[in-house]
Amino acid sequence: MTRKAFGFLLISALLFSIYSCSGDGASKTIKIGNEQWAVSRSLNYLGKIILEENGIPAEIVNTDIENIYRDLNKGKIDLFLDTWIAGHDVYLYEYNDVEDLGAVYKGCRLGMAVPSYFDIDSIVDLKRDSSIYGNVFYGISKDAGVMISSITALKQYEMNPRIVSMEEDKLVKQLELMTNQKQNFVTGAWKPHWKIKQYELKFLADTSNSFIENDEIHKYAKAGFKKAYPKAAKILSNIFFTDDEFSDYLLVLKDATEPADIESKIRAWMKAHPEKVAAWVK
């Protein structure tokens, strides 16, 4: 190899190295873990779209909640934007090699809920007569924080209802059916979620202290994310919703379950709230 050719290759290698180290991980696609829950979809797809619109490739990786934290801990995925600090503590305790990009929402709550027309106010009322709700408890997957707390509460109250677990979208349809028919029912509930307002659900008083009543949702990243993706980390750290803002945002997405529909509705919301989005990406 001639000296001239060697010099050319050396310069090319240096330029490639500089390009590869510039920006947020150059052309590497950021992987965002996602659980198929309404709040999770709303935040993770929002993050994907905002990153893409700022020149950072991103993709959604759908899996269950425990796999998300396990893969985040191992660095197999880069982000999860729906971390409930107290609600997911069982996972954060085990999979703790992660970085916190800050809160996206404050004021979360977990509990048991009933429709407003159901004339009871506490879990104790359910225990007195299980026939008033058919001795059935409706919920989502048992590895969800609200279900772990609900099962703990049921044991504390020495109650043994039949637990019907289903995917969140199917649960919502079941609640809609029972509400339209004015049936009494009990379900695991969490705030924020559009179904609270849509179906006029009320939380039941709990004396067992099994439920979290003031939690926060944070944006979590794999270890080293801030250093590897400074631009992405800065943008994501700015994303925050007030209670009213998040309620309205979730209502916009309440019927969106397919990726194309979710992204379309999020883009429409972003277009309608340019000042909010601009503050995030400044």
Rank of each mutant, 00 (worst) to 15 (best):
T2Q: 14
T2I: 10
T2R: 15
R3I: 11
K4G: 07
G7R: 13
L9F: 09
I11R: 09
A13F: 13
L15R: 07
I18Q: 11
Y19T: 13
S22H: 05
S27C: 10
K31I: 11
Q36M: 15
Q36C: 07
V39W: 01
R41S: 06
R41E: 06
L43M: 14
N44T: 01
Y45S: 06
L46Y: 00
K48L: 03
L51W: 03
L51Y: 04
E52Y: 02
E53G: 13
I56N: 02
P57Q: 01
A58G: 09
E59C: 02
Y69Q: 01
N73V: 05
N73M: 08
K74E: 09
I77N: 04
L79R: 04
F80K: 04
F80L: 05
L81Q: 01
D82M: 12
I85A: 07
A86V: 13
D89P: 00
D89T: 07
D89H: 11
V90P: 03
V90M: 04
Y95C: 04
G102P: 03
A103K: 11
V104M: 00
K106H: 10
S116I: 14
Y117P: 04
Y117K: 03
D119C: 02
I120M: 02
D121W: 08
D121M: 12
S122E: 06
S122G: 07
L126C: 13
L126P: 15
D129A: 11
S131C: 08
Y133I: 04
V136R: 10
Y138L: 11
Y138P: 02
Y138E: 01
G139S: 08
I140V: 14
I140W: 05
K142S: 15
D143W: 13
A144S: 13
A144N: 15
M147N: 06
I148G: 02
I148D: 00
K155C: 03
Y157K: 07
P161R: 01
P161C: 01
P161I: 00
I163S: 00
V164P: 04
M166E: 07
L171A: 03
K173A: 12
Q174R: 15
E176H: 04
M178H: 08
Q181C: 09
Q181P: 07
N184M: 08
F185W: 02
G188Y: 11
G188N: 08
A189H: 07
P192W: 07
P192D: 08
W194E: 15
W194Q: 15
K197Q: 15
Q198V: 04
Y199L: 06
Y199K: 00
L201G: 01
K202F: 03
D206I: 05
S208R: 12
N209M: 12
I212K: 15
D215L: 06
E216T: 15
E216K: 15
H218Q: 08
G224L: 11
G224W: 11
F225Q: 02
F225Y: 01
K226M: 13
K226P: 10
Y229P: 03
K231P: 12
A233K: 05
N238V: 05
N238A: 13
T242C: 03
D243K: 14
D244L: 10
F246L: 14
Y249S: 12
V252P: 08
L253F: 02
L253R: 02
A256T: 11
P259L: 10
I262M: 12
R267T: 12
A268E: 10
W269K: 01
K271F: 05
K271C: 02
A272W: 03
K276G: 09
V277K: 14
V281F: 10
K282M: 09
